[in-house]
C-alpha cells in the first residue's frame, strides 16, 4: 500500500519520510520517557534493591537479604504507623460524603453563590504546610480558637495534638478540610451535568429527597465519585506534610504513618538507615500498588468500552 506506483516513481525518499507515522510518536515521547524513567521508574527499582542492604548512605552497603523486613515485624513503631495509615485511609474517605453534602448545599442559583463556591473551595489551594500551621494554632490548648469555642459551651479545654490517642484524629481532621473542598468541586461539576430529564421523570414517579439522591443522582455522579476516591486514597497514603508540621510524629511517636516513619529512619536525626527506610517505603508502595492496580484496571475497562 505504501509502494504505490506514484511513490516508487518519486525521488528516493529518506528513511524518516518512509517511516514517519511509526517513528514520530517515539520522537515525541522520548524526552518525557527519559525523564520519567530516570527520576521515577529506575528509582523504584533501586529502592527495592536498597531495602535488602544495610546502608548508612555514605559508607559501604552490606547485603543482608530479608533482615530489614524481619526487623519490621518486631518494630512497635512500624506497627503504630501501619495502624495510623489505616485510620487515615478510613477517615480520609469522609471527604467524599462531606464534599457531596456541601456540593448539594451550594448547588443553587442565588445571588453571590459563585463567590460562596470559590470561598468554600479555597482551603484546597493552600499548601498543606499552611493548613498544618493554621490547624495547630487552632488546636492550641490556651491560645487556640477551638478551646475558646469549647469554653463558651462549658467544655474543654482539650490539648488535641498533645494527646496520644486524639492527635492522629486531629491531624486527619485538618487534612479533611482541603480534601473535602476538592471533593466538593468535583461533585459541583458532576451535579451540573446531571440529566434534568431524569430528575423530572423521577419527580413524576414521586421520588423525593433521599430516594431521588440515591437512585437517580448518585449513579449519575459515578465519574466524579471515582476521581474523588482516587485522589482521596492517594492523599491519605501520601500524608506527610501535616504530620511533619503539626506533631513531627509525636506525642510519643503516636502520630507516625509509614511515609513519615520512613523519612525519620532514613533522613532525620535518628540516624541514616537507608536500607531500613527503603524497606518501609517498599511496604507503603505495595499497599499503594493494590490501589494503583485497581485504578488502572478501571481505566483500562473504560478505554476498551470506547
Amino acid at each position: 500500500m505504501t509502494d504505490t506506483p506514484a511513490e516508487q516513481s518519486a525521488a528516493p525518499r529518506g528513511w524518516y519520510k518512509r517511516n514517519e507515522i511509526a517513528v514520530t510518536p517515539w520522537l515525541f515521547l522520548a524526552p518525557a520517557i527519559l525523564f520519567f524513567a530516570f527520576y521515577v521508574i529506575w528509582p523504584i527499582y533501586q529502592s527495592i534493591m536498597i531495602s535488602f542492604y544495610d546502608w548508612d548512605g555514605l559508607g559501604e552497603a552490606r547485603f543482608i537479604g530479608m533482615d530489614n523486613y524481619v526487623e519490621l515485624m518486631d518494630d512497635g513503631a512500624f506497627e503504630v504507623s501501619l495502624w495510623n495509615n489505616l485510620k487515615w485511609l478510613l477517615f480520609y474517605l469522609l471527604a467524599i460524603p462531606g464534599g457531596l453534602f456541601i456540593a448539594l448545599f451550594l448547588n443553587q442559583t442565588v445571588t453571590g453563590i459563585r463567590i460562596y463556591k470559590s470561598l468554600f473551595f479555597f482551603p484546597f489551594v493552600l499548601s498543606q504546610v499552611v493548613v498544618g500551621l493554621v490547624f495547630s494554632w487552632f488546636y492550641l490548648p490556651n491560645e487556640g480558637l477551638l478551646n475558646g469555642v469549647l469554653g463558651l459551651v462549658g467544655l474543654g479545654p482539650v490539648n488535641v495534638l498533645g494527646d496520644p490517642t486524639l492527635a492522629t484524629y486531629g491531624i486527619i481532621a485538618a487534612g479533611l478540610w482541603p480534601q473535602t473542598a476538592y471533593c466538593m468541586i468535583l461533585y459541583l461539576t458532576g451535579l451540573n451535568a446531571v440529566d434534568p430529564e431524569q430528575i423530572e421523570a423521577g419527580r413524576l414517579d414521586n421520588a423525593k429527597g433521599w430516594k431521588m439522591l440515591w437512585y437517580i443522582i448518585i449513579p449519575q455522579l459515578k465519574p466524579a465519585t471515582f476521581i474523588a476516591f482516587v485522589v482521596t486514597i492517594i492523599g491519605a497514603l501520601r500524608s506527610f506534610d501535616l504530620i511533619s508540621i503539626m506533631t513531627n510524629g509525636g506525642p510519643f511517636g503516636q502520630t507516625r504513618v509509614l511515609s513519615f516513619y520512613m523519612f525519620e529512619k532514613a533522613l532525620s536525626e535518628y540516624g541514616f538507615r537507608m536500607g531500613y527506610g527503603a524497606a518501609i517505603a517498599v511496604v507503603l508502595f505495595l499497599i499503594m500498588l493494590v490501589f494503583i492496580t485497581y485504578f488502572l484496571w478501571s481505566m483500562w475497562k473504560e478505554e476498551k468500552a470506547r
Binding site: 510518536p25 507503603l284 481505566m299
Partner: peptide, 28 residues
C-alpha cells in the same frame, strides 16, 4: 498515534504518578 505500546506507555505514566514519594526518596 495508534501503536502497540501506546496503552502501556500511558499506563506507565499514570502508575508512576500515583507512586508514594518515599519509594523515590533515597535514590533520587
Amino acid at each position: 498515534y495508534k501503536f502497540k505500546a501506546n496503552i502501556w506507555v500511558f499506563f506507565m505514566f499514570v502508575a508512576g504518578n500515583f507512586v508514594p514519594f518515599q519509594i523515590l526518596m533515597v535514590p533520587v
